[in-house]
């Protein structure tokens, strides 16, 4: 259950990482869009969280590239209300920063389809 967190702000990344881990998700944090692209191409992921302002505003392009390659759920986040643009570029959902922990975790869980704990239960 791996979540890729492509986030430019290390403080926001630290908190989101913590909230996802407490829910049972494994998280990989990247602070640059190029690094995110490599991981998306090469590794299995259950969710990609994209800060639209990553790498100077490369987030929309990253959403588009992710959508073209795979059907992984994409959660776009930004301090600026860019919901329409994000959805147009392939994101499945958009949340405006600062992120409310409950709302964020709930949205992530909805996008993945079920909680990591439940899925683990199904596998066993």
């Amino acid at each position: 259950m791996s979540v890729l967190l492509a986030e430019r702000d290390p403080y926001a990344a630290e908190f989101v990482d913590y909230f996802l881990r407490t829910e049972g998700y494994a998280v990989r944090i990247v602070l640059h869009a190029a690094e995110a692209r490599q991981i998306i191409e090469n590794e299995p992921l259950t969710l990609v969280v994209v800060d639209l302002m990553i790498s100077g505003g490369d987030g929309l392009a990253l959403c588009r590239a992710t959508r073209e390659r795979a059907s992984i759920p994409i959660l776009a986040v930004s301090a600026v209300d860019s919901r329409d643009e994000a959805l147009e570029c392939g994101a499945d959902a958009f949340l405006q920063k600062p992120l409310d922990p409950l709302q964020f975790v709930s949205t992530a869980r909805d996008l993945i389809g079920t909680s990591a704990y439940l899925r683990r239960g199904e596998q066993s």
């Binding site: 702000d9 290390p10 403080y11 926001a12 630290e14 908190f15 920063k97 600062p98 992120l99 409310d100 922990p101």
Partner: peptide, 12 residues
């Protein structure tokens, strides 16, 4: 800077 960064990252 560190404190403001942390506080801005969350809805506080």
């Amino acid at each position: 800077h560190g404190l403001a960064g942390r506080l801005s990252a969350m809805p506080i």
